[in-house]
Design a protein around this nucleic acid. Structure first.
Lengths: 108, 108
DNA sequence: AACATTTATCGTAATATTACGATAAATAGC
DNA sequence: GCTATTTATCGTAATATTACGATAAATGTT
């Protein structure tokens, strides 16, 4: 016990859950918002912006990257993180479809 | 350590994260999809549908309720769970806004 | 080559999550 | 009032997450 029974659910359900989970932390929301609004995507700038240590921010970045929402490009000694446009669009679509599938009809 | 520094982030960021977190589990996705598609919202029917024990399903339902996405109405000895239309619409809007705020412009 | 800067990874600790069985609580029917 | 049915809660165990400091790795600069 203690581990999600991934294999019992469909790929779609697992993919959707993974995406939502990646977004499911205020620090990662803050990182995404920062990447969207600013011109600077350098990791160090994100660390300066957030009230978290460098290693913690790096971990959050790594999870966002694992979920595919962002990508990192090495730029000298630093790394430039950006929204992965294609994956972002797909996530938007998949999550949007879940919300749209409810048409407002309840049985009770 | 080990606990999220909620107070360091904005209410919007925390609310968004809470919503995403609630959706961030395949079982809860499955529950939501089931509630949306079926006419039956009785807890027992959800338990029959999912590959999880009754107590685990009840826990997931409780989290979805805590997040405000569903509501439960007592119907005799059983409970009828339904999507909370108002909260669903709000969640859809808030999450949609996050995705829409990215217009496809990266710095790198 | 030595050094500074930047980021990732490791090790660790605390808390949270997931899951289950067992039990309790509430209602319906006899 | 007893019994069956349905759901919530409690107790517990295993794994995951969050966070930090310390250290390693990689690059640029002197």
């Amino acid at each position: 016990m203690g581990l999600t029974k991934t294999e019992e659910f469909t790929k779609t359900q697992n993919d959707l859950a993974s995406l939502a989970k990646a977004i499911g932390h205020p620090a990662r929301i803050a990182i995404l918002q920062f990447l969207i609004k600013t011109k600077s995507c350098v990791c160090g700038d994100i660390v300066d912006e957030l009230p978290l240590s460098q290693s913690t921010v790096s971990q959050h970045l790594s999870e966002l990257k694992k979920a595919g929402l962002i990508k990192g490009e090495i730029d000298g000694p630093s790394v430039c993180y950006c929204i992965d446009e294609k994956a972002w669009g797909k996530a938007k679509k998949v999550i949007g479809e879940l919300f749209d599938s409810y048409t407002g009809q309840n049985c009770c």
